[in-house]
Each structure stands twice: as C-alpha cells, then as structure tokens.
Amino acid sequence: MKTVTTTYREALREALREALSADDRVFLLGEDVGRYGGAFGVSLGLVEEFGPERVRDTPLSESAFVGTGIGAAVAGMRPVVEIMTVNFSLLALDQILNNAATLRHMSGGQLSVPVVIRMTTGAGRQLAAQHSHSLEGWYAHIPGIRVLAPATLQDARGMLAPALADPDPVVIFEHGSLYNVSGELTAAEGPLDISSAAVRRSGDDVTLVTYGGSLPKVLSAADLLAEEDISAEVVDLRSLRPLDDVTVMASVARTHRAVVVDEGWRTGGLAAEVSARITEQAFYELDAPVGRVCSAEVPIPYARHLEEAALPQAEDIAAAAREAVGHRG
C-alpha cells in the first residue's frame, strides 16, 4: 500500500482541506485560524486556499464563536470550530453543554447540531496550571455529544470526515504533544469508524487502556515490560463517548488484568469510569484489582521535574502493570 511521510499536524490539516473541498457547507472558525494559521499551525495556508469566508478569524469571544458555530450547524451548515485549547473552552462550556448537547433532546428531536469542535488538550510543555488541563473526562460526561481523541496519524487524518457526517455534535481533542509526531501514513483507506477502540499492540499478560496523548507513553511502557517478559496489550479508546466496552472487555477476558492510564486527574475521572465498567462487566475475569495511572491531584506545576512528577510516565505505567501481574490470581 502506498504510504506518505507526514506529521500529526499535517494529517489534521489534510483532513480539513479535504472537508473544505468536498462540502460547501463546511467552514472553519476560531481565534487565529486564518491569518495566523491556527495557534498550533494546523490550519496554516487554508485561508489562502479557501478565503476568509470559509476560514474565519473570530474575535476573542469563546462563547460567541462556539455558539455561532452551533447555530450555523442547526441551520444546516457543517462548521468546524477550533478552540485554541481546552483551557479556554471553559468560557464556552455553556454553549457546548446547554446548547449543543441539549437542543436535539429539548426540541423533541426537531433540531440537529452537526457541529465539530476541535481543541488542543494536555500538559507536558511546562505551560503551568492554567494551560495544561486534560478535561476530556468532563466532556465525556455529557450525553448528547460524541468525544474523540485521535492518538495516531491515521486517526488525525481520518476522524474528521465521519465526525462531520455525524448529525450530532462531536468534540475532538488533539493532545499538544502529538502535533510534531511524524511517521508513515497509508493512503486513504476509506472512512474510519469513530465508535470503537483499537488494539494498538497485542499482548497476553495485562491490558493497558488509554487514549490520546498518553498512548505513546503507554507504548513505551509496553516496550519496557517486554524486556521483562511481560506481554502487555495496549487498547486505545479513540472514542471517549460513547466508550467501546466490547473491545476493552474482550482484551481483559484474555489478559485478566487491566491498568487504565489517563492524563486527567484521578478523582472522578475517565479512568474511574473505565475501571468501574471493567469491574461491572468483567469482574469474574479479573485476577487483580484494576489499576489506574493518572495525573497527581495538583494544578500542573511549571518546573520541569515537578511537571514530570505530576503526569503519568512510562515508568509509572510499567510499575502499575508489574503490580497487576504480580497478583497471581
């Protein structure tokens, strides 16, 4: 199969370009998406190609432009809203939760909100407490929206089209540490499914469940474990809402051990949800308690060593896996 060398950022851009070319109803809006090229360079060059009507720079007004995207979607357009980062999405949470997620239901099925909202998430770049949030779990809490976390080049390239085809709101989280990841991308394989989790590495001894920016760390941990003859299976959730329980449970049924890795805080987080589902649905398969590796319960600090200590690292993940495997059931 033909492959191209690309980056996560370019894969996202290619997906946007394709969507803008394919459908007149698609347009981008957000702070600095046009002239600047997007805060993370994702939409660089698109305003020159598609013009300022379809790649719209907005004023600093998260609630207004996210709400405007939602309204345009209700009217039948297919807006792709970029919020610079999840940290600023808090200023638009009202529009996302109280409008995008509710309008279909409150109207008794009359309205449809086919909006796509993209945002950067996560820590790891010494940006300190206000610029390092991982709030995917908050969004995954909300009925009425779909939440995606592309962690691979393939998903960066292939999730946008099915997200735009979804008649309901879709929120896409792009982890800031992934934009420069480069690699080979196989040429178009047809539309991706955005409902299921994917097994990124097969193994027999323990299932490591993760998503988004933690995937590379979990794969490194699996390498460490392999040196010790522990065979870890890595499940990438991909869709955080709805969650694909089937893939997770099938893996746990083989390995009998699970560790959930999530950059969000532990308390009340997404890892807690996945862990609860495993105990509800696969309790009798388990040979060890379900483990969790999450961020420390602290605003993410600036100093490099402190930030590293606050975030899940490959060694922490490997340690949790060893502990699970140590339980001989």
Binding site: F27, E53, S63, A64, F65, V66, G67, T68, G69, I70, G71, A72, A73, V74, A75, G76, M77, P79, D94, Q95, N98, N99
Partner: peptide
C-alpha cells in the same frame, strides 16, 4: 444563551 446561537443561524443565512 440564545444570543450566540442566533448569530450562528444568521451566519448560515448570510453564507448561503
């Protein structure tokens, strides 16, 4: 809460 939504409906009308 309805004000940004209305702006979006108006934007769609204008773009079309």
């Amino acid at each position: 809460g309805g004000i940004p939504l209305a702006a979006g409906l108006a934007l769609a009308e204008k773009m079309r």
